[in-house]
Design a protein around this nucleic acid. Structure first.
Lengths: 367, 367
DNA sequence: GACAGAAGATATAACGATATATCATAATTT
DNA sequence: AAATTATGATATATCGTTATATCTTCTGTC
């Protein structure tokens, strides 16, 4: 009796035992003529050895004679064999693929951080693959789950604003190494970030020393962790100087928002002689606004930024800012993850890097 | 006789058959108390059904009674079960993970393209993970191979400058769907890009119509494909106008390089009244140089950019440019990849999107 | 009441790799 | 010469899934 039989996605016919012969023929045909991804099996047959032997040669493990080693390597090269890491990971449990969940891809600061991370992790044989949440916590939840489904040996993560507890719980249960970056939202997770409060305090103190008395903060009522920390440092420095009066003005982290916000601020508080900004983009926008008001940044109004992005050095006038090395930050981030992978029982680590006062031309004594 | 025996990374002892009992105890202990990633097996045991049944429930496949369906779903939820897509991919052959190999992560244009790609592919259940080659073809080769090892169902790729033939061959042999983006380097691969020659021709023609006669091209002797195409369009438009004389000046794609190059160009060719730029970053740098030379962009010297990045709209003066919608471009890119995955036997497709002339304030009649 | 067919579940064999155990030889020791 | 140990290769089970085949049980039909 003839029966339909599915083989490699295609229906073939079988008749009792004939299927065995048929399958043999088909398999052999396929491996001869159809270009399929080569596997250990393919290589082993071509080299005339067993599968474990090929596996050992590819990994440089076990005891293999020079003769068979060369035979196997030749076969692998001829077939353009590329090992399947996922199958390997499945069996061995070791997974050298790291996910980086980032909040804003186009940000040059983030891009440099990624560079630092990758430089360290690729040297250790890891693949670092990135996704961009665009600061949308729902998309983030989907992406994190996707990373778990697709198997990542560790995660680096800039948590989106409004990240829910469900998301944290999901990660906690999966028992996969996670290091948060920049936004220190959970004490039970490893973290690498910037000493935000210290940095804005330094910036503010500098402006106070220059003689400024009306110092506003630009970019800060949408209270993410980082903004809170930065505003806290700013307010602390004002308190120390006995300047209780503090204007915190809202703005998003881009040039246009900075421009608009600074224009409004200058109108509402014309006595302001200095602004500490939440980021360089805002600061650059602020300088634009100062210009448009017929004033000169660094003379009439001092502006100080945060991050030291590339543009800060070439704007007119060049921007004073709190500088952090994103590349170094990235390397630290990778280091902490590697340590965690090596020893999962380590207590949660927090590493915070200082920012340095970098004075260019947008800061000076008040008029 | 006692023997050492390795179990879950730790050495235990075994004595003849006793190992069986020992293993049973250990396994049961582990699954009860140690937090391990739950699998179909775990869920199946908890729900009191077989593994294939759970698999079917999770996928919504096969015929399952409502009763067992609920039982299984409850067990899965209680255990926080997350399916292992790699194991699934291994068996089923279907792999919904896409790799995006990009040349410059910090570029906001690229970031928006990624947004378009992801919007379409995530809706189809794909995970898009990104790596940054930083235009280094050796790093790129390592990353592409890593993507193949780790199993990607398709690749989107901005080929780095100097990509070698070995790299193309590696990809060709692996038989994995690949779509190149922006840089159309191989006729045997699908491609999505911009009509570069058409765009620069449009820009140049516009300058000619404004009355310019000394029109230079800024950013172009390092001859990548894209630069070649753009210069070709520029030269074609000059030829049409009977203006044989063309100055092509070198510059990298960033502000500082644009500033330096434009300063040099103005010194070497003071009669130049207009420049077509290879990108907006160069154009913004060029405007800076024009300013520093005591001239006004759009009046003394016209500058036109390419890409319409966010900064172009808020620079002073706002930049005229050739605008393309990166988001739309990203969706096109994703579409082409999906089509290829659906039908691997399709002939190679090339999709090219037009750029639009977007006039702001850096272009005008010559003085 | 026998039988066909459907419904709902399970058994089994892959996918491509690695870990462990085992098995032939050859080389060395006693 | 017999026993032991190294050496180099292979056999087998397993990782977490899914595809296919098989097996009950329960209908409904004649």
């Amino acid at each position: 009796m003839l029966q339909e039989y599915a083989f490699q996605g295609k229906k073939v016919l079988r008749y009792m035992d004939t299927i065995v012969i048929l399958r043999c023929i088909v398999i052999s045909t396929a491996s001869e003529f159809v270009s399929r991804k080569p596997t250990l099996n393919t290589v082993a047959r071509k080299a005339g050895v067993s599968i474990p032997t090929v596996s050992q040669v590819m990994r440089g493990a076990g005891r293999i004679s020079e003769e068979t080693r060369e035979k196997v390597l030749k076969a692998a090269q001829d077939l353009h064999y590329v090992p399947n890491s996922r199958a390997a990971a499945m069996r061995s449990g070791e997974n050298r693929e790291i996910g980086f969940v980032i909040n804003q891809l186009g940000n040059p600061f983030n891009a440099e951080v990624v560079g630092g991370v990758v430089d360290l992790l690729e040297a250790e044989g890891y693949l670092v693959s990135i996704v961009d949440t665009r600061d949308d916590h729902e998309r983030q939840a989907r992406q994190l789950e996707a990373f778990i489904r697709h198997g990542r040996g560790g995660l680096l993560w800039v948590p989106a604003t409004d990240t829910t507890n469900e998301t944290f719980d999901l990660l906690a249960v999966q028992g996969i190494p996670v290091v948060t970056f920049l936004r220190n939202v959970r004490s039970d997770l490893d973290h690498v970030g910037i000493r935000n409060a210290e940095a804005t305090a330094t910036a503010t103190r500098h402006l106070v020393e220059l003689g400024h008395r009306e110092i506003a903060y630009l970019g800060g009522t949408d209270l993410t962790i980082v903004r809170k920390q930065r505003i806290a440092g700013y307010e602390r420095a004002l308190d120390e100087a006995g300047l209780a009066h503090a204007v915190v003005w809202d703005s998003e982290d881009n040039k246009i928002a900075g421009l608009d916000a600074m224009s409004a601020l200058l109108q509402a508080h014309p006595k302001t002689t200095a602004v500490v900004c939440n980021g360089d983009m805002v600061a650059l926008g602020a300088c634009l606004a100062v210009n448009r008001a017929g004033l000169v940044p660094g003379k009439d109004v001092s502006v100080i930024g945060f991050d030291n992005i590339q543009d800060a050095a070439v704007s007119t006038p060049p921007l004073s800012t709190m500088a952090v090395s994103p590349h170094k930050l990235g390397r630290k981030l990778a280091r902490v993850l590697l340590d965690r992978i090596e020893d999962p029982d380590l207590p949660a680590t927090v590493v915070e890097v200082s920012a340095e006062l970098l004075l260019r031309e947008t800061t000076g004594a008040p008029p």
